[in-house]
Design a protein around this nucleic acid. Structure first.
Lengths: 200, 200
DNA sequence: GTCTAGACCTACCGTTCGGTAAGCCGGGGT
DNA sequence: ACCCCGGCTTACCGAACGGTAGGTCTAGAC
Protein backbone atom coordinates (compact mmCIF):
# COMPACT_ATOMS: atom_id res chain seq x y z
CA UNK A 1 0.00 0.00 0.00
CA UNK A 2 2.87 2.43 0.47
CA UNK A 3 3.54 1.96 -3.23
CA UNK A 4 0.16 3.42 -4.12
CA UNK A 5 0.44 6.35 -1.75
CA UNK A 6 3.97 7.09 -2.81
CA UNK A 7 3.08 7.28 -6.49
CA UNK A 8 0.01 9.37 -5.80
CA UNK A 9 1.87 11.98 -3.77
CA UNK A 10 4.58 12.26 -6.36
CA UNK A 11 1.99 12.70 -9.09
CA UNK A 12 0.23 15.42 -7.12
CA UNK A 13 3.53 17.21 -6.71
CA UNK A 14 4.31 16.99 -10.41
CA UNK A 15 0.82 18.21 -11.30
CA UNK A 16 1.01 21.11 -8.86
CA UNK A 17 4.45 22.08 -10.06
CA UNK A 18 3.37 21.91 -13.70
CA UNK A 19 0.47 24.26 -13.15
CA UNK A 20 2.49 26.79 -11.17
CA UNK A 21 5.51 26.74 -13.49
CA UNK A 22 3.14 27.06 -16.41
CA UNK A 23 1.45 30.12 -14.96
CA UNK A 24 4.43 31.94 -13.48
CA UNK A 25 7.60 30.56 -14.97
CA UNK A 26 10.48 29.08 -13.02
CA UNK A 27 11.53 32.06 -10.96
CA UNK A 28 8.00 33.27 -10.42
CA UNK A 29 6.93 29.90 -9.06
CA UNK A 30 7.42 29.47 -5.35
CA UNK A 31 7.89 26.21 -3.51
CA UNK A 32 5.15 27.36 -1.16
CA UNK A 33 2.56 27.62 -3.92
CA UNK A 34 3.55 24.32 -5.47
CA UNK A 35 3.10 22.41 -2.22
CA UNK A 36 -0.16 24.21 -1.60
CA UNK A 37 -1.62 23.01 -4.90
CA UNK A 38 -0.22 19.55 -4.31
CA UNK A 39 -1.75 19.59 -0.81
CA UNK A 40 1.52 18.58 0.75
CA UNK A 41 3.93 20.08 3.28
CA UNK A 42 7.28 21.39 2.31
CA UNK A 43 9.65 18.65 3.43
CA UNK A 44 7.55 16.20 1.45
CA UNK A 45 8.67 17.92 -1.71
CA UNK A 46 12.29 17.51 -0.64
CA UNK A 47 11.58 13.90 0.21
CA UNK A 48 10.59 13.21 -3.38
CA UNK A 49 12.86 15.63 -5.22
CA UNK A 50 16.30 17.02 -4.54
CA UNK A 51 15.12 20.61 -4.80
CA UNK A 52 13.12 23.02 -6.92
CA UNK A 53 15.51 22.59 -9.78
CA UNK A 54 15.27 18.81 -9.70
CA UNK A 55 11.49 18.96 -9.76
CA UNK A 56 11.60 21.32 -12.71
CA UNK A 57 14.13 19.25 -14.58
CA UNK A 58 12.10 16.10 -14.09
CA UNK A 59 9.01 17.86 -15.38
CA UNK A 60 10.76 19.13 -18.49
CA UNK A 61 12.41 15.87 -19.45
CA UNK A 62 9.30 13.78 -18.78
CA UNK A 63 7.06 16.09 -20.78
CA UNK A 64 9.47 16.40 -23.63
CA UNK A 65 10.36 12.74 -23.91
CA UNK A 66 6.73 11.72 -23.95
CA UNK A 67 5.84 14.29 -26.58
CA UNK A 68 8.85 13.41 -28.68
CA UNK A 69 8.04 9.71 -28.51
CA UNK A 70 4.50 10.40 -29.66
CA UNK A 71 5.84 12.40 -32.56
CA UNK A 72 8.06 9.54 -33.63
CA UNK A 73 5.23 7.06 -33.27
CA UNK A 74 2.97 9.21 -35.38
CA UNK A 75 5.53 9.21 -38.16
CA UNK A 76 6.07 5.44 -38.18
CA UNK A 77 4.86 3.94 -41.40
CA UNK A 78 3.69 7.20 -42.92
CA UNK A 79 5.30 7.95 -46.26
CA UNK A 80 5.53 11.19 -48.16
CA UNK A 81 6.58 14.55 -46.82
CA UNK A 82 3.15 16.11 -46.82
CA UNK A 83 1.56 13.15 -45.11
CA UNK A 84 4.32 13.02 -42.50
CA UNK A 85 3.99 16.71 -41.71
CA UNK A 86 0.25 16.23 -41.37
CA UNK A 87 0.76 13.33 -38.99
CA UNK A 88 3.13 15.44 -36.94
CA UNK A 89 0.87 18.44 -36.63
CA UNK A 90 -2.14 16.25 -35.92
CA UNK A 91 -0.43 14.77 -32.88
CA UNK A 92 0.89 18.13 -31.74
CA UNK A 93 -2.53 19.76 -31.94
CA UNK A 94 -4.29 16.80 -30.34
CA UNK A 95 -1.85 16.89 -27.44
CA UNK A 96 -2.39 20.59 -27.00
CA UNK A 97 -6.15 20.22 -27.01
CA UNK A 98 -6.24 17.43 -24.44
CA UNK A 99 -3.51 18.69 -22.12
CA UNK A 100 -2.84 22.35 -22.89
CA UNK A 101 -0.64 22.90 -19.85
CA UNK A 102 2.02 20.46 -20.97
CA UNK A 103 2.26 22.00 -24.43
CA UNK A 104 2.38 25.50 -23.00
CA UNK A 105 4.93 24.51 -20.45
CA UNK A 106 7.31 23.11 -23.03
CA UNK A 107 6.98 26.12 -25.30
CA UNK A 108 7.49 28.52 -22.42
CA UNK A 109 10.62 26.67 -21.40
CA UNK A 110 11.90 26.65 -24.92
CA UNK A 111 11.24 30.34 -25.46
CA UNK A 112 12.33 31.52 -22.04
CA UNK A 113 15.35 33.77 -21.46
CA UNK A 114 18.60 31.81 -21.48
CA UNK A 115 19.35 32.21 -17.79
CA UNK A 116 15.84 31.92 -16.44
CA UNK A 117 15.68 28.86 -14.27
CA UNK A 118 18.40 26.24 -13.94
CA UNK A 119 21.34 26.40 -16.29
CA UNK A 120 20.49 23.19 -18.14
CA UNK A 121 20.32 23.11 -21.89
CA UNK A 122 16.79 23.85 -22.90
CA UNK A 123 18.21 24.64 -26.29
CA UNK A 124 19.08 20.98 -26.66
CA UNK A 125 15.42 19.97 -26.47
CA UNK A 126 14.44 22.55 -29.01
CA UNK A 127 17.13 21.35 -31.32
CA UNK A 128 16.12 17.73 -31.01
CA UNK A 129 12.64 18.52 -32.17
CA UNK A 130 13.97 20.78 -34.86
CA UNK A 131 16.27 17.99 -35.98
CA UNK A 132 13.31 15.66 -36.33
CA UNK A 133 11.47 18.11 -38.54
CA UNK A 134 14.60 19.01 -40.49
CA UNK A 135 15.07 15.32 -41.27
CA UNK A 136 11.56 15.23 -42.72
CA UNK A 137 12.41 18.20 -44.88
CA UNK A 138 15.63 16.62 -46.08
CA UNK A 139 13.78 13.48 -47.08
CA UNK A 140 11.22 15.56 -48.90
CA UNK A 141 13.90 17.38 -50.83
CA UNK A 142 15.71 14.20 -51.78
CA UNK A 143 12.45 12.61 -52.86
CA UNK A 144 11.77 15.62 -55.06
CA UNK A 145 8.61 16.42 -53.13
CA UNK A 146 10.02 19.72 -51.87
CA UNK A 147 11.52 22.36 -54.11
CA UNK A 148 14.72 22.64 -52.12
CA UNK A 149 16.35 25.13 -49.83
CA UNK A 150 17.98 24.66 -46.46
CA UNK A 151 16.20 21.87 -44.53
CA UNK A 152 16.79 23.62 -41.23
CA UNK A 153 15.27 26.84 -42.49
CA UNK A 154 12.24 24.92 -43.70
CA UNK A 155 12.01 23.17 -40.33
CA UNK A 156 12.18 26.48 -38.49
CA UNK A 157 9.45 27.85 -40.68
CA UNK A 158 7.20 24.86 -40.14
CA UNK A 159 7.76 24.74 -36.39
CA UNK A 160 7.07 28.45 -36.21
CA UNK A 161 3.83 28.09 -38.05
CA UNK A 162 2.80 25.25 -35.74
CA UNK A 163 4.04 26.68 -32.44
CA UNK A 164 2.54 30.08 -33.05
CA UNK A 165 -0.88 28.49 -33.20
CA UNK A 166 -0.22 26.57 -30.00
CA UNK A 167 0.87 29.77 -28.25
CA UNK A 168 -2.18 31.54 -29.60
CA UNK A 169 -4.39 28.90 -28.05
CA UNK A 170 -2.54 29.31 -24.77
CA UNK A 171 -3.43 32.98 -24.80
CA UNK A 172 -7.04 32.50 -25.86
CA UNK A 173 -8.15 29.01 -24.91
CA UNK A 174 -11.39 29.24 -26.85
CA UNK A 175 -9.34 28.90 -30.02
CA UNK A 176 -9.66 25.32 -31.31
CA UNK A 177 -6.71 23.45 -32.74
CA UNK A 178 -8.73 21.04 -34.84
CA UNK A 179 -7.20 18.32 -37.00
CA UNK A 180 -8.62 20.15 -40.01
CA UNK A 181 -6.75 23.32 -39.08
CA UNK A 182 -3.59 21.26 -38.84
CA UNK A 183 -4.12 19.81 -42.29
CA UNK A 184 -4.81 23.25 -43.71
CA UNK A 185 -1.62 24.60 -42.19
CA UNK A 186 0.43 21.83 -43.78
CA UNK A 187 -1.23 22.51 -47.11
CA UNK A 188 -0.44 26.19 -46.64
CA UNK A 189 3.17 25.33 -45.94
CA UNK A 190 3.38 23.07 -48.97
CA UNK A 191 1.35 25.00 -51.51
CA UNK A 192 1.82 28.58 -50.34
CA UNK A 193 -0.64 31.33 -49.65
CA UNK A 194 -0.79 32.91 -53.08
CA UNK A 195 -3.72 32.36 -55.35
CA UNK A 196 -3.48 29.55 -57.85
CA UNK A 197 -2.89 31.64 -60.93
CA UNK A 198 0.59 30.82 -62.18
CA UNK A 199 3.06 33.47 -61.19
CA UNK A 200 4.82 34.84 -64.28
CA UNK B 1 24.17 70.44 -17.72
CA UNK B 2 21.84 68.55 -15.41
CA UNK B 3 19.74 67.79 -18.47
CA UNK B 4 22.55 65.84 -20.06
CA UNK B 5 23.42 63.92 -16.93
CA UNK B 6 19.83 63.16 -16.21
CA UNK B 7 19.20 61.65 -19.62
CA UNK B 8 22.43 59.71 -19.52
CA UNK B 9 21.70 58.12 -16.16
CA UNK B 10 18.20 57.16 -17.26
CA UNK B 11 19.56 55.66 -20.45
CA UNK B 12 22.11 53.64 -18.53
CA UNK B 13 19.36 52.33 -16.28
CA UNK B 14 17.19 51.35 -19.22
CA UNK B 15 20.11 49.67 -20.93
CA UNK B 16 21.09 47.76 -17.81
CA UNK B 17 17.53 46.69 -17.17
CA UNK B 18 17.09 45.56 -20.77
CA UNK B 19 20.12 43.33 -20.64
CA UNK B 20 19.21 41.76 -17.30
CA UNK B 21 15.53 41.25 -18.14
CA UNK B 22 16.58 39.81 -21.46
CA UNK B 23 18.91 37.29 -19.85
CA UNK B 24 16.88 36.29 -16.81
CA UNK B 25 13.29 37.31 -17.33
CA UNK B 26 11.31 39.58 -15.04
CA UNK B 27 11.33 37.53 -11.86
CA UNK B 28 14.87 36.31 -12.36
CA UNK B 29 16.15 39.86 -12.73
CA UNK B 30 17.12 41.55 -9.49
CA UNK B 31 17.21 45.26 -8.83
CA UNK B 32 20.70 44.75 -7.49
CA UNK B 33 22.03 43.42 -10.76
CA UNK B 34 20.30 46.07 -12.82
CA UNK B 35 21.84 48.91 -10.85
CA UNK B 36 25.20 47.18 -10.98
CA UNK B 37 25.18 47.11 -14.77
CA UNK B 38 23.89 50.66 -14.89
CA UNK B 39 26.67 51.67 -12.47
CA UNK B 40 24.20 53.39 -10.21
CA UNK B 41 23.10 53.00 -6.60
CA UNK B 42 19.69 51.69 -5.65
CA UNK B 43 17.83 54.85 -4.71
CA UNK B 44 18.80 56.30 -8.07
CA UNK B 45 16.65 53.70 -9.73
CA UNK B 46 13.71 54.72 -7.56
CA UNK B 47 14.44 58.32 -8.32
CA UNK B 48 13.90 57.71 -12.03
CA UNK B 49 11.25 54.99 -11.89
CA UNK B 50 8.46 54.16 -9.50
CA UNK B 51 9.68 50.62 -8.97
CA UNK B 52 10.86 47.49 -10.76
CA UNK B 53 7.50 47.08 -12.43
CA UNK B 54 7.50 50.65 -13.72
CA UNK B 55 10.95 50.22 -15.19
CA UNK B 56 9.88 47.03 -16.90
CA UNK B 57 6.69 48.53 -18.22
CA UNK B 58 8.52 51.51 -19.64
CA UNK B 59 10.98 49.21 -21.35
CA UNK B 60 8.25 47.10 -22.92
CA UNK B 61 6.15 49.95 -24.20
CA UNK B 62 9.11 51.94 -25.52
CA UNK B 63 10.57 48.94 -27.34
CA UNK B 64 7.26 47.87 -28.75
CA UNK B 65 6.09 51.27 -29.88
CA UNK B 66 9.35 51.97 -31.64
CA UNK B 67 9.33 48.62 -33.40
CA UNK B 68 5.70 48.96 -34.36
CA UNK B 69 6.25 52.44 -35.75
CA UNK B 70 9.14 51.16 -37.86
CA UNK B 71 6.92 48.41 -39.20
CA UNK B 72 4.27 50.90 -40.21
CA UNK B 73 6.84 53.16 -41.82
CA UNK B 74 8.26 50.29 -43.78
CA UNK B 75 4.84 49.53 -45.20
CA UNK B 76 4.09 53.08 -46.26
CA UNK B 77 3.87 53.35 -50.00
CA UNK B 78 4.60 49.70 -50.68
CA UNK B 79 1.91 47.98 -52.71
CA UNK B 80 1.18 44.30 -53.19
CA UNK B 81 0.96 41.68 -50.50
CA UNK B 82 4.23 39.97 -51.30
CA UNK B 83 6.15 43.23 -51.40
CA UNK B 84 4.57 44.40 -48.16
CA UNK B 85 5.44 41.18 -46.37
CA UNK B 86 8.98 41.48 -47.65
CA UNK B 87 9.22 45.03 -46.38
CA UNK B 88 7.95 43.90 -43.01
CA UNK B 89 10.36 41.03 -42.60
CA UNK B 90 13.26 43.10 -43.86
CA UNK B 91 12.74 45.62 -41.09
CA UNK B 92 12.19 42.93 -38.48
CA UNK B 93 15.37 41.11 -39.43
CA UNK B 94 17.39 44.30 -39.70
CA UNK B 95 16.25 45.36 -36.24
CA UNK B 96 17.18 41.99 -34.84
CA UNK B 97 20.62 42.08 -36.42
CA UNK B 98 21.49 45.53 -35.17
CA UNK B 99 19.94 45.31 -31.69
CA UNK B 100 19.30 41.66 -30.90
CA UNK B 101 18.48 42.31 -27.27
CA UNK B 102 15.43 44.41 -28.02
CA UNK B 103 13.98 41.82 -30.38
CA UNK B 104 14.66 39.01 -27.94
CA UNK B 105 13.23 40.97 -25.08
CA UNK B 106 9.96 41.60 -26.87
CA UNK B 107 9.59 37.99 -27.95
CA UNK B 108 10.38 36.73 -24.46
CA UNK B 109 7.78 39.02 -23.00
CA UNK B 110 5.23 37.99 -25.55
CA UNK B 111 5.88 34.28 -25.05
CA UNK B 112 6.28 34.39 -21.29
CA UNK B 113 3.89 32.67 -18.89
CA UNK B 114 0.75 34.73 -18.29
CA UNK B 115 1.50 35.63 -14.68
CA UNK B 116 5.22 36.12 -14.97
CA UNK B 117 6.02 39.69 -14.18
CA UNK B 118 3.48 42.45 -13.71
CA UNK B 119 -0.13 41.74 -14.55
CA UNK B 120 -0.26 44.07 -17.54
CA UNK B 121 -1.59 42.90 -20.85
CA UNK B 122 1.32 41.63 -22.85
CA UNK B 123 -1.25 39.84 -24.97
CA UNK B 124 -2.42 43.21 -26.17
CA UNK B 125 0.94 43.98 -27.73
CA UNK B 126 1.05 40.62 -29.45
CA UNK B 127 -2.39 41.18 -30.84
CA UNK B 128 -1.58 44.63 -32.16
CA UNK B 129 1.25 43.26 -34.22
CA UNK B 130 -0.87 40.32 -35.30
CA UNK B 131 -3.61 42.72 -36.31
CA UNK B 132 -1.18 44.61 -38.51
CA UNK B 133 -0.16 41.44 -40.32
CA UNK B 134 -3.72 40.16 -40.51
CA UNK B 135 -4.70 43.38 -42.23
CA UNK B 136 -2.02 42.76 -44.85
CA UNK B 137 -3.43 39.31 -45.41
CA UNK B 138 -6.97 40.61 -45.74
CA UNK B 139 -5.85 43.09 -48.36
CA UNK B 140 -4.03 40.34 -50.20
CA UNK B 141 -7.12 38.18 -50.25
CA UNK B 142 -9.36 40.97 -51.43
CA UNK B 143 -6.87 41.87 -54.12
CA UNK B 144 -6.87 38.27 -55.29
CA UNK B 145 -3.18 37.94 -54.56
CA UNK B 146 -3.77 35.37 -51.84
CA UNK B 147 -5.83 32.23 -52.32
CA UNK B 148 -8.01 32.85 -49.30
CA UNK B 149 -8.49 31.40 -45.85
CA UNK B 150 -8.74 33.08 -42.49
CA UNK B 151 -6.55 36.22 -42.42
CA UNK B 152 -5.73 35.71 -38.77
CA UNK B 153 -4.57 32.17 -39.36
CA UNK B 154 -2.38 33.36 -42.21
CA UNK B 155 -1.00 36.10 -39.97
CA UNK B 156 -0.22 33.62 -37.21
CA UNK B 157 1.55 31.40 -39.68
CA UNK B 158 3.63 34.24 -41.08
CA UNK B 159 4.54 35.65 -37.67
CA UNK B 160 5.49 32.18 -36.54
CA UNK B 161 7.75 31.68 -39.50
CA UNK B 162 9.38 35.04 -38.83
CA UNK B 163 9.59 34.90 -35.04
CA UNK B 164 10.98 31.40 -35.02
CA UNK B 165 13.96 32.60 -36.97
CA UNK B 166 14.45 35.51 -34.61
CA UNK B 167 14.34 33.16 -31.63
CA UNK B 168 16.75 30.84 -33.36
CA UNK B 169 19.19 33.69 -33.75
CA UNK B 170 18.78 34.51 -30.10
CA UNK B 171 19.85 30.99 -29.24
CA UNK B 172 22.72 30.83 -31.70
CA UNK B 173 23.88 34.36 -32.44
CA UNK B 174 26.14 33.29 -35.29
CA UNK B 175 23.00 32.68 -37.35
CA UNK B 176 22.56 35.60 -39.74
CA UNK B 177 19.18 37.08 -40.48
CA UNK B 178 20.07 38.51 -43.88
CA UNK B 179 17.65 40.46 -46.05
CA UNK B 180 17.94 37.63 -48.58
CA UNK B 181 16.78 35.10 -46.01
CA UNK B 182 13.82 37.32 -45.28
CA UNK B 183 12.91 37.51 -48.95
CA UNK B 184 13.24 33.74 -49.28
CA UNK B 185 10.95 33.20 -46.31
CA UNK B 186 8.27 35.41 -47.81
CA UNK B 187 8.59 33.55 -51.09
CA UNK B 188 8.29 30.30 -49.16
CA UNK B 189 5.19 31.59 -47.46
CA UNK B 190 3.68 32.73 -50.74
CA UNK B 191 4.69 29.92 -53.06
CA UNK B 192 4.95 26.97 -50.69
CA UNK B 193 7.69 24.46 -50.13
CA UNK B 194 6.63 21.82 -52.62
CA UNK B 195 8.45 21.37 -55.87
CA UNK B 196 6.99 23.04 -58.91
CA UNK B 197 5.84 19.85 -60.60
CA UNK B 198 2.05 19.72 -60.43
CA UNK B 199 0.87 17.65 -57.51
CA UNK B 200 -1.05 14.45 -58.46
C1' DG C 1 26.75 84.74 0.82
C1' DT C 2 22.66 82.31 1.15
C1' DC C 3 18.97 79.42 -0.37
C1' DT C 4 16.80 75.94 -3.11
C1' DA C 5 16.28 71.93 -5.64
C1' DG C 6 17.77 68.21 -8.34
C1' DA C 7 20.83 64.17 -8.26
C1' DC C 8 22.67 61.07 -5.56
C1' DC C 9 24.59 58.60 -1.25
C1' DT C 10 24.79 55.21 3.17
C1' DA C 11 22.31 52.43 5.98
C1' DC C 12 18.49 50.17 7.02
C1' DC C 13 13.63 47.80 6.84
C1' DG C 14 10.21 43.87 6.65
C1' DT C 15 9.03 40.04 3.69
C1' DT C 16 9.62 36.07 1.13
C1' DC C 17 12.54 33.00 -0.67
C1' DG C 18 14.67 27.96 -0.95
C1' DG C 19 16.09 24.62 2.15
C1' DT C 20 16.75 21.78 6.69
C1' DA C 21 16.89 19.67 11.53
C1' DA C 22 14.68 16.70 14.27
C1' DG C 23 11.01 14.23 15.66
C1' DC C 24 6.23 11.60 15.06
C1' DC C 25 3.58 7.69 13.53
C1' DG C 26 1.83 3.46 11.61
C1' DG C 27 2.59 -1.00 9.51
C1' DG C 28 5.48 -5.17 8.44
C1' DG C 29 9.20 -8.31 9.72
C1' DT C 30 11.16 -11.07 13.23
C1' DA D 1 7.16 -7.20 22.22
C1' DC D 2 10.37 -5.05 19.65
C1' DC D 3 12.48 -2.53 16.11
C1' DC D 4 12.85 -0.37 11.78
C1' DC D 5 11.88 2.38 8.10
C1' DG D 6 9.13 4.84 4.77
C1' DG D 7 6.22 8.77 4.74
C1' DC D 8 5.17 12.65 6.91
C1' DT D 9 5.01 16.64 10.52
C1' DT D 10 6.26 21.25 13.13
C1' DA D 11 9.47 24.65 13.62
C1' DC D 12 13.17 26.87 12.20
C1' DC D 13 17.34 29.00 9.32
C1' DG D 14 20.28 32.31 6.54
C1' DA D 15 20.14 34.73 2.32
C1' DA D 16 18.24 37.51 -1.09
C1' DC D 17 14.60 40.09 -2.32
C1' DG D 18 12.07 44.92 -3.32
C1' DG D 19 11.77 49.19 -1.23
C1' DT D 20 12.69 53.45 1.93
C1' DA D 21 14.30 57.00 5.47
C1' DG D 22 17.18 60.55 5.86
C1' DG D 23 21.33 62.91 4.92
C1' DT D 24 25.03 64.90 1.41
C1' DC D 25 26.77 67.36 -2.36
C1' DT D 26 26.73 70.48 -6.12
C1' DA D 27 25.06 74.01 -9.31
C1' DG D 28 22.35 77.77 -10.38
C1' DA D 29 19.14 81.83 -8.70
C1' DC D 30 19.03 85.87 -6.30
Amino acid sequence: MPEQKHGDTERRLLAGALSVFCEKGYDGASIREIIKRAEVTRPVLYYYFANKEGLFHRLVTDSFEQAFAEFENALAGVVGCRARLKALIRVAFARTECSPEVARFLLHVFFSPPQEGPQFDKVRFGRRRLGLVAALMREGIEAGELAGGDPETLALAFCGLMDMHIMAKAQEPERRLTPELGQDLVDLFMDGARSGVPAV
